[in-house]
Write a protein that binds this DNA or RNA. Structure first.
Length: 801
RNA sequence: GGGCGAUUAGCUCAGUUGGUUAGAGCGCUACCUUGACAUGGUAGAGGUCACAGAUUCGAGUUCUGUAUCGCCCACCA
């Protein structure tokens, strides 16, 4: 017997244990049937999981559960992205010391221990949330296997000429002392002193130049004006200069005045310094105009010897000193404070610089067309997300920089020969390898065995972009790889289409010539109640997933996560969570009622074959159910989980509970006989179907009811490995639906009649006068009409009477 | 500045190819302890579908423009 109350805390914990012990979600490698492989996003191990992640991971789980019930062999692994800068910063924060202040080995060991603990914690939350992951396949991007894949990928790309090292201007974070990718740069509004400097012209005239970076003056290599700017047209080609003996290695900075479209006549004086490098325009000009390189800022963010006596100062201090020196010499024409956006490193908030360093790149610029075609081969849900990918690819400016000057990451598996400078790659058998700890297997072609190991590590994207290959066991297990690559589905957030989706497509295309997955489901963000992105909102006032689960149940949290259209952002909503709770309670009570009315339940009721003598009411409900199944199925096929859920709920709440149960009550309470059996059969199968339809959303309550009420009659050990309801076109019955509509209208009128007279809905009626065109249809449902209206007698009158 | 989305009831959201009085839940009002459920039920109030044009017999739905918000990118002298 189902108890009166559903105690979710006890039940959810117990069921989660049960599923785990039964390996319920184990991938069946030897079975038959189509394989559905999910290229799960490995959450970054850089803090706690937040509600935003519960939001998107639940959506994926709903799809996984749906597919599993459809008979597909779902391969649903889970990974954790636990190397690279984000994890290092997380570790530094937890340890309270910086990586640069520790022994290399000790820092790595601390990172490993911390990530292991954190990942165990993540796993327990995911289990509690009910994610139907096959935990035997938990992976981590810093694991030996993932490192091996990542290093082998690099070696392959290098040998194919697609990876190369180059001295190049790269975005650099002086705080983290590493190159970073475009994708890691945030815009921050900062107040800045905007200073106008006086450059001298050959004719003795003066040229005003406005700048926010006066400390880069020693790195100034040119001045640019717009070719159409009448004020300066006559100056193009001549030189401008400024005295700089106090703060530069050259006493006079003298640079050419050049013309370029990118100079904006409306900004500052219309003439602008080009320094190597202040911003990306400088980089562009440096390239297109073949300008010399003068690096005023070093890797540590301090000034180089280019600034003469000021060498070694941090940039901010150098700026102050240079400004006061310029002021002393009367070289400042004006100053104002402005607000402007500065590129900052998203991990630490430090303004980024462009430095000329040796970095590893993967060539992508020459493959835009192929990458666009590949993107179009993937089915995007929702489809407009493809456009974001296309715009990103079309607007790519640089090749993909994959190297980082950090510690806890995947090393580049290579050494450089000190004698001849040739790069030596590790051999496959050596992988994974740290070239700083292990030497090459053979000497260099030139005969020397004196090698300089690579000290860089790869950016996290370089490894996480291999996720379909990591879960596909590339290249060690070709049979497995053939089964799981391309993967069926990549779920991910829309903000990283340009990063994760793009990089994954790049790698997949370069290594296999194929797209990495057939479909991708893009999720939106969960926003806090103030409509800010949850992962970015600061402070501890934010409610945690554990709290919500403890207070409201995992089912209720999942219910919220399945609201809203696929891909759209949604605000955290306690009201929606409460609705989830209500739905669970309603399911529980409807099931208890069903259980009580199905005493003496037998195999015939549980069988798929309906008994003879279904009443119009039964046939109406079944017809509505058939439509609900069809709609829910087609919505889930197009990854619109919320639309599917809405349809199921409407059917359950309104058709089944509010109407059918009231109509069928007297049959269910009344005498045994064909009419009662018809109602029992209808109720049994309708409730079971509703539970199955809701099982992907509310895995706990549906399982609890299934175990208590249905398992003994159904074959499956768990609702989650039972079969998804088939569509039953034979239940569609337009005549019964007509009757149903008439019945509902009748019920509505009777209920209004009672409400207007402040009568209880159960108040008996002496006689119910029905005047309807559909008398013939309704008459067959007399028993049920009396049941729902409590009419003692029905009097049929002709329409118009 | 560019791209993509959003703007519908007090709140959170649906509205698939343009077609009769625009939907749901919450909240609100009134009533009902009815033999599953008061974590319930019934009935009801509440919207000039951001704004301005255009196309059409007909526009929440298509087009153009404007405003506001979000994400992404660019700019950032």
């Amino acid at each position: 017997m189902l108890p009166n109350r559903y105690a979710f805390r006890e039940a959810e914990a117990r069921l989660a244990r049960l599923w785990s012990e039964a390996d319920l979600y184990a991938f069946d490698a030897d079975g038959s049937g189509p394989i559905f492989t999910i290229d799960t996003p490995p959450p970054t191990v850089s803090g706690e999981l937040h509600l935003g992640q519960c939001y998107s991971y639940t959506q994926t789980d709903i799809i996984a559960r749906y597919r599993r019930m459809r008979g597909e062999r779902v391969f649903y692994p889970m990974g954790f992205d636990d190397n690279g800068l984000p994890t290092e910063r997380f570790a530094e924060k937890r340890i309270g010391r910086k990586a640069t202040e520790m022994e290399h080995e000790a820092f790595i060991a601390a990172c490993r221990e911390l990530t292991r603990q954190t990942e165990d914690h993540f796993e327990s939350l995911w289990r509690r949330l009910g994610l139907s992951v096959d935990w035997r396949y938990r992976y981590s991007t810093v694991s030996p296997q993932a490192q091996k894949v990542s290093q082998w990928s690099f070696i392959q790309l290098y040998q194919a000429g697609r990876a190369y090292a180059q001295l190049a201007p790269a975005l650099w974070c002086p705080e983290c002392q590493t190159a970073i990718a475009q994708a890691e740069v945030d815009d921050t509004m900062l107040p800045t002193l905007f200073t106008t400097l006086a450059f001298r012209l050959p004719d003795g005239g003066m040229l005003p130049i406005a700048t926010t970076r006066p400390e880069l003056l020693p790195a100034c290599v040119a001045i640019f004006v717009h070719p159409d700017d009448a004020r300066y047209a006559h100056l193009i080609g001549s030189m401008a200069s400024i005295e700089s003996a106090d703060f530069s290695d050259r006493p006079l900075i003298e640079v050419p005045i050049l013309a370029d479209e990118l100079a904006d006549p409306t900004k500052g004086s219309g003439a602008v310094m080009c320094c190597t490098f202040g911003d990306s325009t400088d980089v562009r000009w440096w390239r297109t105009h073949n300008l010399p390189l003068r690096a005023a800022i070093g890797r540590d963010g301090r000034m180089t010897t280019l600034v003469g006596p000021l060498a070694g100062l941090p940039t901010a201090e150098a700026r102050q000193r240079i400004l006061s020196l310029l002021a002393e010499h009367g070289q400042i024409l004006g100053q104002e404070t402005i607000e402007h956006t500065v590129g900052t490193h998203e991990r630490c908030g430090t303004p980024v610089e462009y430095l000329h360093t040796r970095q590893w790149f993967i060539r992508v610029l020459d493959q835009k067309q192929r990458l666009l075609e590949a993107g179009r081969e993937v089915a995007w849900h929702p489809d407009y997300m493809l456009t974001r990918y296309e715009r990103w690819v079309e607007n790519l400016q640089w090749d993909w920089c994959i190297s980082r000057q950090r510690y806890f990451g995947v090393p580049f598996p290579a050494w450089t020969c000190k004698a001849c400078g040739k790069l030596q790659l590790a051999s496959f058998e050596q992988l994974p390898i740290d070239p700083q700890l292990t030497a090459p297997l053979s000497p260099c072609e030139c005969g020397s065995s004196d090698f300089e190991p690579e000290t860089d590590v790869m950016d996290t994207w370089a490894t996480s972009s291999c996720s379909p290959m990591i879960i596909g066991r590339w290249p060690d297990d070709p049979a497995w790889f053939a089964q799981h690559f391309p993967a069926s589905l990549r779920p991910q957030g829309h903000e990283i289409i340009r990063a994760w989706a793009f990089y994954t497509i790049v790698k997949s295309l370069y290594h296999t010539g194929k797209i990495p997955w057939h479909e991708t489901m893009i999720s939106g963000h969960a926003l806090s109640s103030e409509r800010r992105k949850i992962s970015k909102s600061k402070g501890s006032q934010e409610i945690t997933p554990d709290e919500v689960i403890e207070r409201e149940s995992a089912d209720a949290l999942r219910y919220w996560a399945a609201s809203g259209r696929t891909g759209s952002d949604i605000a955290f909503s306690p009201e929606t969570i409460a609705n989830g709770r209500r739905l669970a309670t309603k399911l529980w009570n409807a099931s208890r009622f069903t259980e009580s009315r199905l005493q003496g339940l037998d195999a015939a009721i549980a069988s798929d074959t309906p008994p003879d003598g279904l009443l119009p009411t039964d046939r109406w409900l079944l017809s509505r159910l058939a439509r609900t199944i069809a709609i829910a199925t087609s919505e889930l096929n197009r990854y619109e989980y919320a639309a599917a859920r809405g349809e199921i709920e409407r059917f359950f709440w309104s058709d089944l509970c509010d109407n059918y149960l009231e109509l069928a009550k007297s049959r269910l309470y009344g005498e045994a006989g064909p009419e009662q059996r018809a109602a029992q059969w209808t109720l049994y199968h309708t409730l079971l179907t509703v539970l199955k339809l809701l099982a992907p959303y509310l895995p706990y309550i549906t399982e609890e009811i299934y175990q208590g009420l249905f398992r003994q009659w159904e074959g499956a050990a768990s609702i989650h490995i039972s079969s998804w309801p088939s569509e039953h076109p034979e239940w569609l019955d337009s005549e019964a639906e007509e009757t149903g509509k008439a019945l509902l209208e009748l019920l509505h009128q009777v209920r209004r009649h009672k409400a207007e007279r402040n009568l209880s809905i159960g108040a008996p009626l002496e006689a119910l006068h029905i005047s309807s065109q559909q008398k013939a249809l309704l008459e067959a449902a007399s028993t049920d009409i009396k049941s729902a209206t409590r009419a003692k007698e029905i009097v049929w009158t002709a329409p118009g009477e």
